[in-house]
Computed example of a mutant assay.
Amino acid sequence: MRLLTAARLGPADLARLGVAGLRSRPLRAVLAALGIAIGIAAMTAVVGVSASSRAELHRTLDRLGTNLLTVGPGTKLFADEPAELPVEAPAMVGRIGPVTSVSATGRVDARVYRTDRIPAPQNGSIAVVASYLDLPATVGATVADGVWLNAATARYPAVVLGATAAARLGAVTGQPVWLGDLWFTVVGVLAPVPLAPELDSSALVGWDTAAGYLGFDGHPTTIYTRAAESSVEAVAAVLANTANPESPTEVQVSRPSDALVAGRAADDAFTGLLLGLGAVALLVGGVGVANTMVISVLERRGEIGLRRALGATRGQIRAQFLAESLLLCALGGVGGVLLGIGVTTAYAMAQGWPAVVPAWASLGAVGATLVIGAVAGLYPAVRAARLAPTSALAH
């Protein structure tokens, strides 16, 4: 006598059974998949926005260069008063072999106002600085309106305002401003300078103008230096001794691009927090899927008993409900990834950034949903497989 064996279910058969089970209760399936989709979308969007922001940072640094070094006065060793850079410091720094360009600014003891009627204390924290003519080329600054100082305007009462200074003064190109007891004409307004943000809140005048009209003593307060990319560290090591050979310990050397990278590290920490929130949302979605599958088992006892009576094995029942759980989570995962990509693209376009969603994030999100689907559907599947055919049919 030949024993009858249950027919084996292939992947296609399991997929059809899973789809049929989900279609029997579409609203519940959609709501459960939506919980998964929200968690996946949150995680994908967080990673995508962070990657897009990082790509914009790299693009900015590539455009502005990471070979900018700044030299400024520190403090005197046995006094609290600030040190002073020699007048010849920019010229001495320019003699360093790998240095490609040098420019400088010097703080001027003067204040700038929109009119001569404003009380002296109300200066809006705008610094007045003398500037070399080649400053924009060295620090990567651009003029948003008007022109930069030239050989002619640098000797007369002309001023270029930083972006923040222009906004505080409410000044535009061609307008006079009251600077150091004189009327200066605004000849230009700078765009924001990422690698030298101190210039944004400054009023810049020519070096000769500052000396002739404002009593500037000629001592630079900041020296901006560009060096060959391969020699940045070597140049940084000798800048202090070169700028002030008599007191190199009273010189501070910094690399502005490092500040941008440090800011990005803080953003990465914030990204980690948001990823944690996305993971919590994903966990909540997984609990929703498990709840949906448990209720499905309870409501479909008759179907389970009939299938067992017709010869279905416990393994086949277990595989059927596990397939439904995996399909439910896969739908939520794919939908969440697409939603996250859409959110990332929209946000990046609004910010003017390149839209970047790492492939590992998309694939990892889908993989995470499948793992959650397997875990969430395991208990309901095992419970369904343990139902006795007689008790299930009686129910």
Rank of each mutant, 00 (worst) to 15 (best):
Thr5Ile: 08
Ala6Leu: 10
Leu9Glu: 11
Ala12Asn: 05
Leu14Asn: 10
Leu22Gly: 05
Arg25His: 14
Pro26Gly: 04
Ala32Val: 02
Ala33Glu: 00
Ala41Asn: 04
Gly74Leu: 08
Asp80Asn: 13
Glu81Asn: 13
Val87Phe: 08
Ala91Gln: 13
Gly97Met: 13
Pro98Gln: 05
Pro98Thr: 04
Thr115Val: 00
Thr115Pro: 08
Gln122Asp: 15
Asn123Arg: 14
Ser125Phe: 14
Ala130Leu: 12
Gly146Glu: 00
Ala151Tyr: 03
Gly162Pro: 01
Thr164Val: 15
Leu179Gln: 07
Thr185Phe: 00
Gly188Pro: 01
Val189Glu: 03
Leu190Trp: 03
Leu204Ala: 04
Trp207Tyr: 14
Asp208Thr: 15
Asp208Arg: 14
Asp217Lys: 06
Thr221Ala: 12
Ile223Arg: 03
Ala228Asp: 15
Ala236Gly: 02
Asn244His: 08
Ser247Asp: 14
Glu250Gln: 13
Ser254Gly: 07
Arg255Cys: 04
Ala269Pro: 01
Gly272Phe: 05
Leu273Asn: 00
Gly278Gln: 06
Gly278Ile: 03
Val280Gln: 03
Gly286Trp: 03
Val287Met: 11
Val287Lys: 01
Val289Glu: 01
Ile295Tyr: 01
Leu306Met: 15
Leu306Ser: 11
Arg307His: 06
Gly311Lys: 11
Ala312Asn: 10
Thr313Asn: 08
Ala319Pro: 10
Val334Arg: 00
Val337Cys: 10
Val337Asn: 02
Leu338Gly: 01
Ile341Thr: 01
Gly342Met: 05
Ala348Asn: 07
Ala350Gln: 12
Ala350Val: 10
Gly352Glu: 06
Gly352Trp: 09
Val356Thr: 07
Ala359Met: 12
Ala361Arg: 06
Leu363Asp: 05
Leu363Lys: 00
Thr369Leu: 04
Gly373Asp: 03
Pro380Trp: 00
Leu393Phe: 09
His395Asn: 15
